[in-house]
């Protein structure tokens, strides 16, 4: 018997292009949740910056850039996406490997905002949700994370087990938006 074979969460259900919007699964690399211990937020941020070049993000924000991004991920928690988290950070924060826990999808195109307006109960228009802003919120019925990557581009994370539902919900919303022409 050969090696164990890895399967991506959205295999078989993405990509999708409908109208002017594309939904594409992305490989973010390692995902590590970083939860600084009591009173250690600054130290953890310093350690993270020293190792990976970006501090811990403030609430509802991201730091870093494509390839190495820290996404605010909830109360006292950030998600490092990209590199394996440097063990030096572990002195100040609980590190948990979540590389396989999330389905990661980018939604992009001129109508991406309109598609998300059908799924997310948060104002994601560029006036209030700027590049680098992130929200822990709902995608229809699913808990998830939404980050604005650019003027017409968002990163969506939902539980891996719900990847198929995400694809379904995106598809319906994309179809409805596209049909408006």
């Amino acid at each position: 018997m050969g090696e164990l074979v890895g399967t991506s969460p959205c295999a078989g259900v993405l990509p999708l292009t409908i109208g002017d919007v594309q939904a594409v699964e992305v490989e973010l690399g390692h995902l590590t949740s970083i939860a600084p211990f009591a009173g250690q937020a600054t130290a953890a941020s310093v350690a993270l910056e020293a190792a990976h070049g970006m501090p811990l993000p403030k609430a509802n924000c991201t730091t870093g850039k494509e390839g190495a991004r820290a996404i605010w991920f909830g109360r006292d928690m950030a998600l490092l996406a990209g590199p394996t988290c440097d063990p030096a950070v572990a002195k100040h924060a609980a590190l948990t490997d979540q590389s396989d826990a999330w389905a990661a999808v980018t939604l992009s195109g001129p109508s991406a905002e309109d598609v998300l307006a059908r799924l997310v109960p948060v104002d994601l228009r560029s006036v209030s949700f700027k590049r680098g802003h992130t929200a822990r919120t709902l995608l229809k019925h699913m808990n998830g994370s939404v980050t604005r990557l650019g003027p017409e581009s968002f990163l969506i994370l939902v539980f891996r087990s719900m990847a198929r539902t995400l694809a379904h919900d995106l598809k319906e919303a994309m179809e409805a938006v596209a049909a408006r022409g």
Binding site: A59, N60, V122, A135, T137
Partner: peptide, 9 residues
């Protein structure tokens, strides 16, 4: 922490 949100969250 997050700001004004819909009650279904």
């Amino acid at each position: 922490i997050c700001g004004a949100r819909d009650r279904r969250e």
